[in-house]
């Protein structure tokens, strides 16, 4: 089962968890499962139209999924997908 790693600013909306096991064959399906498990995460990750917000950085290993196949990027059972936050002040 792929694992999604949650950054500090999103942990309050995921019951404080740093990692969540998710189901899905693609990045999009994994995010769908994540937001099904933790509905409060949805508005932070997706626009009202249901699209992934442009600034959300998703990394599979060292690769930005934007440079792979975006939300259609396939995931294998032991993949770790990281949601990387922007860098705040200073």
């Amino acid at each position: 089962m792929p694992i999604l790693r949650i950054p500090t600013p999103l942990r309050p909306y995921a019951e404080g968890q740093t990692e969540v096991n998710v189901q899905g064959q693609t990045v999009g399906e994994a995010l769908g499962d994540l937001t099904a498990q933790f509905p409060e995460l949805k508005k932070h990750l997706f626009s009202d139209a249901g699209e992934l917000r442009a600034f959300v950085n998703l990394f599979l290993g060292e690769e930005d999924v934007r440079h792979l196949e975006g939300v259609d990027t396939p995931l294998s059972e032991d993949d770790k997908l990281r949601i990387i936050p922007s860098i705040a002040g200073g």
Binding site: H44, A54, S86, I87, A88, G90
Partner: peptide
């Protein structure tokens, strides 16, 4: 400041959660 803890405003802080 950013409207939420998770944001894309590099260089800015969401004070209530930082």
């Amino acid at each position: 400041q950013p409207d939420a803890a998770f944001h894309g405003l590099e260089g800015l802080k969401h004070m209530p959660t930082a």
